[in-house]
Design a binder for these strands. Structure first.
Lengths: 347, 347
DNA sequence: GGTGGGTGGGAAAGCGCTTGCCAGCTCCCC
DNA sequence: GGGGAGCTGGCAAGCGCTTTCCCACCCACC
């Protein structure tokens, strides 16, 4: 029913082999004359290669897999876009799987991507700190790699994979220092679940910077939650409640380690009539597109989301594939101060 | 190198055919005894089916393609998420292509998805009003359908495809009426490019509702722009400039037919020190997750983005595949009034 | 006890493509 | 002018799976 390479070959009066080489072949060359004839036949017939067949014959598909928590989340959406663009540039399509960070679904997703013989898997935020599954994940990925698959991680997922190093820790530290410079001394920090490596890295950065100034977050001023709006809102509520119950003053600065979280924080503070930044400064992380449109415009740390995705693909697809650590890409993080932060007590 | 079905068959002491039937086969049955043996061997060996090979043999892949403008855009991200979830439930993976609404890239994407023999293509916002390419797109999709492909569209893309009917027009009309009810009479409307069907539908709804009240947008008060933040900002700037130059009063209500656009509108108004909603009410469309966190919280029309994606998949995958119009799904739109709108002149 | 029908296993023919290998040709150099 | 060297075409063997036949077998029934 569909037009096959065979049809094209017959129409052009050449062999199947020649047709194949003319249209996709790389190693061997075909005279321009024949090649042109084949190409002409191909589009006269409206030939469309059969990707699965090619994948089978070459034993490597024309796709790239992306593993992430949720495409609808701006952070991951940005990465997915970058991966998709880079893939398209390489003539590949991208397979996107949203796992909500559920380890079992991640494992499942890796297996499916492997089954589809994707050329590379990009890991963007997986449950890589969850010891209960990390081994299974590693095994699944190892099996994939053994069969020629490439995997690139965005943010550290261990030394086994090429990784796009994201300056999460540095960025968080810089952000914290910026707040310290403004004069803040009472901090609250809202981070993500322990199983998320990114969250841990960012938290480390914050703690380190605080430590440099001889500070440690007081009991209750360090909250762990999911990186969601609701998570941020609830965490902020807890922070205020803890402070009020214990009679301690509110923090003057709240650092939410994800912009989405920070949006929840802002919402909660608004609901409680606590002025930002007058009473409390709030900062996020990621600089998602709408960060600047929040009320007030959110101070945050800018990450080049799409480029991170592109880097990952480039890393995974690069020639040779020798895992040369020097090749790891770096994504820098830049502090962006907007209206949600100010010096404490200036009002 | 990889474990093949043949290996499993040998290990289980059965034929290739039996192994295939035990693991995936449908038509023919295999005795439970053998079947169990095969399954045991399969996971003893860590067998992972080769999807491309299966796709080739069955001449239909285990993937679904999604065509959209930009995964990083919250509107499309939500849809992509829904498609991905529904696909996963059906044991499929989803191939996502961001085309930025460029007709040529859409055509290219359709061809690639076809080449990959995706089981269905979900059209979410394509250049379907652009006559210069609509024919080519239709041809490409027709070719795909002829070979057994299914296509489902989110929002009307013509009668040739199953479609998830989105109440764009009705929602826009309802939103407009809500503003009329508040007392607004001077409107400005910011819509998307003509080639976008959604934009046209929404605009129709607005105009129809205005017409019911005997209103028509004045010259310059109807702006067309891309559905982006910057597009919205620029359009709002033009609206203010036009009004000032012509000495007409500013509109009391601005309807931006996409939330992202509305974010730009709010930013521009803020920059010009025009108070929302005191001086101008602003409304968006889509109810993207962060709409409620904008400043002020955005009034908008809620669309069940993820469910729209799921519907599309269900439509495309349903049994038989008879294109029964009665089967078309409907996605309702609900007006959500928040702080960005108020009665005119109450301040 | 013979025959017809039903059932489950296996051999083998593809699915559409890539690619290793061989054959034929041209070209060049001694 | 003869003989490699170097190209370019074509043949055919897969890639890993599904599926059509065919066959062996078992049961039931006359």
């Amino acid at each position: 029913m569909a037009v096959t390479l065979g049809d094209v070959a017959r129409h052009a009066g050449v062999s199947l082999a020649t047709a194949s080489r003319a249209l996709n072949g790389s190693a061997r060359s075909v005279t321009e004359e024949l090649s042109a004839k084949v190409r002409a036949s191909a589009d006269a017939l409206g030939y469309l290669p059969n990707a699965p067949a090619q994948a089978l014959a070459r034993s490597s598909g024309a796709t790239i897999g992306v593993l992430l928590h949720d495409v609808a989340d701006p952070y991951f959406g940005g990465i997915a876009r970058g991966v998709g663009d880079a893939a398209a540039r390489a003539g590949l399509l991208s397979l996107v799987t949203s796992t909500d960070g559920d380890p079992r679904r991640e494992l499942e997703a890796i297996r499916m991507l492997h089954a589809h013989r994707v050329r590379a898997i990009v890991l963007a935020g997986s449950a890589y700190n969850d010891v209960s599954v990390i081994q299974e994940l590693d095994e699944a990925l190892a099996a994939y790699q053994e069969q020629g698959g490439r995997v690139a991680a965005i943010t550290d997922h261990g030394p086994l994979y090429d990784t796009v190093e994201v300056a999460n820790k540095e960025g968080a530290a810089a952000l914290t220092r910026a707040l310290l410079d403004l004069g803040h001394r009472r901090f609250a920090v809202i981070t993500g679940p322990e199983r998320m490596r990114v969250a841990e890295d960012r938290l480390d950065g914050v703690l380190e910077a605080l430590d440099e100034s001889g500070l440690t977050p007081v009991e209750g001023m360090l909250q762990r939650t999911e990186f969601t709006r609701e998570g941020g809102r609830a965490a902020m509520a807890r922070i205020v409640d803890v402070a009020r119950e214990s009679g301690t003053p509110l923090p003057t600065a709240v650092i939410a380690l994800s912009d989405i979280c920070a949006a929840g924080v802002l919402a909660e503070l608004r609901a409680r009539d606590i002025a930002v930044p007058e009473e409390i400064s709030v900062a996020g992380f990621d600089d998602i597109p709408l960060a600047t449109d929040l009320a007030p415009a959110l101070s945050t740390v800018r990450l080049p989301l799409a480029r991170m995705g592109e880097f990952a693909v480039r890393l995974a697809l690069r020639e040779g594939g020798g895992r040369d650590l020097a090749d790891n890409s770096h994504a820098s993080a830049e502090v962006v101060l907007r209206d949600s932060t100010a010096a404490p007590g200036v009002y």
